[in-house]
Design a binder for these strands. Structure first.
Lengths: 138, 138
DNA sequence: TACACCACGATAATTATTATTAATTAATAT
DNA sequence: ATATTAATTAATAATAATTATCGTGGTGTA
């Protein structure tokens, strides 16, 4: 939290309550919220905040590599304050998005680099299935 | 090509020139085109074809598991007539999207299942980097 | 205090996609 | 071959997500 303030200042961006608030929402959830979800979550405490501000804050945090953007195949994006490359898994039944530990993926990029001739800079790994809760119901 | 016709008939769908054309575009390219790109490619030969028809054809092929839908992080989808689960790699510089052989990924899903408790039904693996051409330029 | 400079909120504009509807076409039985 | 009918198409309106615009106001600095 202080970390963000420091980075914003260093990069010459202003530290505003809106920006902190957006970042805090992401930092304090494991739910990979959409813009809409972030906006709704902030409505009570920041009733005058604009959707555009959420979009702009996220864009800025993305550029600063303070959040990462996900797209699990929806027509919208989700956001995550954990910027470490790690796989995500989404339930095809209820739509929730969870993290997956990524110890086993550590050398994937190297293998891909060799195969494709690309210089790899990033990766996104998405898995799909039925989460434990939805498995029970079925 | 004949294969598609057969499947459409079996499933009770009509075989139309538009549908064949959309499928052919996907079958004969490795470029993972967007809806727009498919539409443009068909314009000369099918000048009256509607964008909505491209969308609907793709939706149907998706349901029939004849094409798969990709989203590498753009605000739109791309399509691939290769429905086998396989990783994709996209150039952060020129935007091209290529395939990656996936022999090394064959048991990823099982590992993820164990770790998350999900019952895995699918996966999407995207890598990012500089393609060989763009590496040269830099 | 005055002056820039951002950043904000409101809202218009844009882009991708989906829904609607009337007309056309493919499949089937005559 | 032709008529029937039900699916499909093209055109276009509608919707949803995102981005751009712009006037206002706060903040830091000279």
């Amino acid at each position: 939290m202080l970390e963000v303030v420091k980075i914003l200042k260093e990069k010459g961006y202003k530290v505003t309550p809106q920006r902190i608030a957006v970042y805090d929402v992401l930092k304090n959830t494991k739910e990979h919220p959409t813009v809409e979800a972030i906006y709704n979550k902030l409505q009570p405490a920041y009733p005058t905040m604009s959707l555009a501000t959420v979009y702009k804050s996220l864009e800025m945090f993305k550029d600063l590599n303070l959040v990462q953007e996900l797209n699990v195949g929806e027509d919208k994006f989700r956001y995550d304050a954990n910027v470490k490359l790690h796989p995500h898994i989404t339930c095809v039944s209820c739509g929730r998005v969870d993290d997956v530990d990524d110890e086993m993926f550590f050398n994937l990029s190297e293998q891909v680099a060799v195969k494709t001739g690309y210089e790899i800079t990033g990766q996104k790994l998405y898995f799909y299935g039925h989460c434990p809760k939805c498995k029970q119901k079925a």
